[in-house]
Simulated assay, not measured.
Amino acid sequence: MSGAQYTLTGRLAVALPPEAAFTLFTPRGEELWVAGWRPRFPMGTSDDSAPGTVFETGTDDELTIWVVAAREPGRRVSYARVTPGSRAGTVTVEVDADGQGGSTVRVTYELTALTPQSQGPLREFAGSYRDFLRSWEVDIARHLGSPPPAPTVRT
């Protein structure tokens, strides 16, 4: 056993109502604002957030296999993810109205290192999780053509 396991949760602001914000966290929706994000689907799918949908990201040295585990359309999506020889776990995104026409998005990563060699990189990811989500907030604002919001990421 590697002994490294983390549950990381944080929140960020998105200047869209929940239904529209939700689409930014689907596999194809993330292509709009995540540099280099290119999901590949082994089976054609018209609904990329339907439970059971499988897709891959990355390359041979950092290939990640994803499965949509659960979904409440417009509100919540959960993914199981495995990067062979490195880490495995889940990512859950929950979207709520912020009362001002936008959304508060809660993102939870639950990850386990699969090898002793992957403990360090996972520990580094955990240590920079707040900055990681802040980069999402900035990239989404840029995609929407709005100025980056004041830091709202909370863990």
Rank of each mutant, 00 (worst) to 15 (best):
L8G: 10
H143I: 01
D98F: 02
Y129K: 07
D131L: 12
G102H: 00
P149L: 06
R106G: 12
P151Y: 02
A88T: 06
S135W: 11
T64D: 01
P148W: 06
G101R: 00
P84G: 04
A113I: 02
T112S: 15
S2T: 14
T7M: 12
G52V: 07
F22H: 01
V153L: 06
D47H: 03
A70N: 08
T9L: 07
T9K: 09
L63C: 06
V153Q: 11
E62A: 13
T104V: 15
F41Q: 08
T59W: 05
V105Y: 10
P149S: 13
L24H: 00
V91K: 01
G44R: 07
Q100C: 08
E124I: 11
L24K: 04
V107P: 07
P39W: 01
T26D: 02
G120M: 08
H143Y: 08
P148H: 09
T155Q: 09
T152G: 13
E72Q: 12
S46A: 00
G58P: 07
P18D: 04
Q5M: 14
P151I: 02
G101Q: 06
R123Q: 15
P42F: 04
G3L: 14
T115P: 06
R130D: 15
P39K: 00
D60N: 02
W66S: 02
G36I: 05
A88K: 06
W136K: 03
S86V: 14
T45L: 03
W136Y: 15
A150Y: 08
E62W: 14
W66E: 01
G44L: 07
A20Q: 12
G10D: 10
P73W: 10
A35N: 09
F55V: 00
S118V: 03
V153S: 08
D96N: 11
P73C: 07
V14L: 03
V67G: 00
T7D: 14
D96C: 05
W33P: 02
A50V: 03
G44Y: 04
S2R: 10
T53E: 04
H143W: 00
G89L: 11
R106V: 15
L16P: 03
A88Y: 04
G145R: 05
F41H: 09
T115A: 01
T53I: 04
S128F: 13
R130Y: 14
V105K: 06
T92Y: 04
D47S: 01
L32N: 00
P116A: 15
R142W: 04
V107I: 15
E30M: 06
M1F: 13
T83A: 12
P73R: 04
S86P: 00
T26N: 02
G99H: 12
A35F: 05
E94W: 05
F125E: 09
Y109W: 14
D139A: 15
R40K: 14
V153C: 13
Y6T: 09
A150D: 14
R28H: 01
R154E: 15
A15R: 09
E137Y: 13
M1H: 07
P51I: 10
A113P: 03
T64N: 01
L63H: 07
S49W: 01
Q119C: 15
